[in-house]
């Protein structure tokens, strides 16, 4: 398993041909208290960069973009009742959805943990 990061502050944890997607610690901190997450439906198909989900904090709504092209195979239903999981556990229980990774080349365009750390350091 390998975790990749996008410039939009999503992570994708790829195991075999399926990736689990969430937002990073940096993103949850920037968004503040998250009160609602609109997740896609199982079976929905997205191209890389498509708007796939929406996160609402007390302050504002932010779009989440699909880091890869694929089909949704599962969504985190716990977020419906407890969106704050994204704040408390952005890289664990606060995951958003699972998506098939149909084109592994797209992963090459993402960052690894070290590159992402350098990337967010440059944003400060």
């Amino acid at each position: 398993m390998t975790i990749y990061y996008s410039e939009d502050h999503e992570w994708i944890n790829v195991e075999g041909s399926v990736g689990t997607v969430g937002i990073t610690e940096y993103a949850q901190n920037a968004l503040g208290d998250i009160v609602f997450v609109e997740v896609p439906e199982v079976g929905d198909e997205f191209a890389k960069g498509d708007e796939v989900s929406v996160v609402e904090s007390v302050k504002a709504a932010s779009e989440i973009y699909s880091p890869v092209t694929g089909e949704i195979t599962a969504v985190n239903e716990d977020l419906e009742e407890n969106a704050a999981l994204v704040n408390s556990s952005p890289d664990g229980d606060g995951w958003f959805f699972k998506v098939t990774v149909s084109n592994k080349d797209e992963l090459e365009e993402l960052m690894d943990a070290g590159d992402y750390k350098t990337f967010i350091a440059g944003l400060e």
Binding site: H9, A30, G32, K59, S62, Y65
Partner: peptide, 9 residues
């Protein structure tokens, strides 16, 4: 109209 932090900027 506060500066809303967007995941994509």
């Amino acid at each position: 109209t506060e500066g809303a932090p967007m995941v994509r900027v």
